[in-house]
């Protein structure tokens, strides 16, 4: 099976309000407000141009942020699973 790619929810389905230590995201289809802390908002932003595999996402984010490359895959997978469970990210 090909490695899954992750797609972020369409921009018109969310309202985003950056606060200081987290970002409040109102998800229209569910009516739920999510309070996202790093790196969840960064993941969602990275997926805006196009869906990415986990490996591509790790590469993209470690280039831009101070992430430990060794742990990054595990951390990002856990965050992706959480984002997928609440409907902010789809697995393709």
């Amino acid at each position: 099976m090909a490695e899954p790619r992750y797609r972020t929810v369409a921009a018109d389905l969310i309202l985003v309000e950056p606060l200081d230590i987290f970002t409040a995201v109102f998800h229209r289809p569910s009516g739920i407000t999510h309070l996202l802390s790093e790196p969840a908002p960064q993941i969602m932003e990275a997926l805006v141009p196009a869906p990415l595999t986990l490996a591509a996402l790790v590469q993209f984010l470690t280039q831009r942020f101070d992430l430990d490359a060794a742990d990054a895959a595990t951390t990002l997978q856990a965050r992706l699973d959480e984002l997928e469970a609440v409907g902010l990210v789809d697995r393709l």
């Binding site: 229209r28 289809p29 569910s30 009516g31 739920i32 409907g87």
Partner: peptide, 16 residues
């Protein structure tokens, strides 16, 4: 309309 939104989302999550 909020009730509808919540119900549809719950159905979506159950299907998921």
């Amino acid at each position: 309309s909020e009730v509808r939104r919540t119900a549809l989302w719950e159905a979506n999550r159950v299907a998921h």
